[in-house]
Amino acid sequence: MKVKRICYACDLVDNPELIQEYKRYHSKENAWPEITESIKKAGILDMEIYILANRLFMIMEVDETFSPERKQMMDAANPKVQEWEKLMWQFQQAPPGAKDGEKWLPMEQIYKLI
Rank of each mutant, 00 (worst) to 15 (best):
L56G: 00
Q20I: 11
T36H: 12
I19E: 00
L45R: 04
M74V: 06
M47V: 14
I51A: 05
F66H: 01
A77K: 04
C10H: 10
D63W: 03
A77M: 06
T65D: 10
A77Q: 09
P79F: 08
W32I: 05
K28M: 11
N15A: 01
A53P: 13
E64N: 07
F57Q: 01
H26Q: 13
N15K: 04
Y25E: 13
I59H: 14
A76L: 11
N54S: 04
L45W: 08
P79G: 01
F66I: 05
V13E: 00
N15Q: 05
R24Q: 15
W32T: 04
S38V: 11
Y8T: 06
K23L: 14
D75K: 11
D14C: 04
E37I: 08
R70D: 14
A9Y: 13
Y8A: 06
I35V: 07
K23P: 15
L45H: 00
A77F: 02
N30S: 08
T36N: 14
A76G: 10
E61H: 11
I44H: 04
E17M: 09
A42M: 06
N15G: 04
A42T: 04
D46A: 09
F57G: 01
M73V: 11
W32R: 07
E69T: 08
E48M: 11
P68C: 02
P79K: 02
M58Y: 02
P33Q: 06
T65W: 09
Q20V: 08
Q72F: 15
N78Y: 07
L12Q: 02
E34D: 09
I49S: 00
Y25P: 13
Q72T: 15
I49P: 02
M58D: 07
A77H: 07
I59Y: 10
M73P: 11
N78R: 05
D14G: 00
A53C: 14
K28P: 12
M58S: 09
I49G: 02
D75L: 12
D63K: 01
T36C: 11
Y50V: 07
P33Y: 04
